[in-house]
Amino acid sequence: MGKMNTSVDTLVKSHIDKLALILINSHRQQLVARSYDKAVFYTPGGKREPGESDKEALLRECIEELSVDLLTSTKTPATIQLFGTFEAQAYGKSEGTMVRLSCFRVTPRDAELELEHMVKASEEVEELKWIDSSFDREKLTVTGIMILDDLKRKGLID
């Protein structure tokens, strides 16, 4: 029994909580990003800093990674809505280290579409790419694959 409890404790301690932006363009493609020296793309976002709400952290991360303020950059008044939560083995981390990704979308759709032409890679990001469900799964994180499959299943991307 002791070993089982230890591994459960380890799993609880090895949990990365992140926020991510799901942005879908006019061509029904999802935005993904790739950091320098990384082989895979991820859903843009990151971790909360102490005292930040989910939305504050997401806004800050999108300014840092995508060079855009989700709420003030668009002509159409925008809000941020929770889309869903995805959990999987964390990319590049030791076995059992899980990542929980709370994903958000910008609404209304008009505001989301305006962002399509505004996002650009910051110094933190080597490459941004718009992808559909035919994208090579080997080039995505596990949560990235789960999100892509969910978007396809819901008819949001091609």
Rank of each mutant, 00 (worst) to 15 (best):
V8L: 10
M118I: 13
V68F: 02
I22H: 05
I24P: 04
K93H: 00
K47H: 05
N25R: 08
L140M: 14
V125E: 07
L21A: 07
L59M: 06
S26P: 14
E116P: 06
S53Y: 02
T10H: 10
Y42T: 04
L21R: 04
L113F: 12
S94T: 11
A78I: 12
L156R: 11
P50F: 05
L140S: 06
K139R: 14
G45F: 09
D110S: 10
T10F: 06
M146I: 15
G84E: 05
G84P: 08
V12Q: 01
L82H: 05
V12I: 06
I157G: 11
D37L: 14
K93V: 03
I131G: 06
K55Q: 07
I145Y: 13
V8R: 09
F86Q: 00
I147Q: 10
G45N: 09
R100Q: 04
E112R: 11
E114I: 13
R60W: 13
D54H: 03
F135E: 15
T97I: 03
R109F: 03
M98C: 00
T6N: 04
Q29W: 15
L66T: 11
L59W: 03
Q81G: 02
L113K: 09
S14T: 04
R60F: 05
K3Y: 02
G155F: 10
E114S: 05
H27C: 14
P50Q: 12
D37R: 07
P50D: 07
F41E: 12
T43A: 09
M118Y: 11
K154N: 10
G46L: 07
M1T: 01
S122I: 11
L128F: 15
M98I: 08
A57I: 05
A78D: 09
I24H: 04
V32N: 11
R153N: 12
L70P: 07
E52R: 04
I16G: 02
S122A: 04
M1N: 00
R60S: 00
L156E: 14
Y42H: 03
S35C: 08
D37I: 15
V119T: 11
L23A: 03
G155E: 13
D9N: 13
M118K: 14
V106R: 01
S7Y: 11
D149T: 10
E64K: 13
E126T: 07
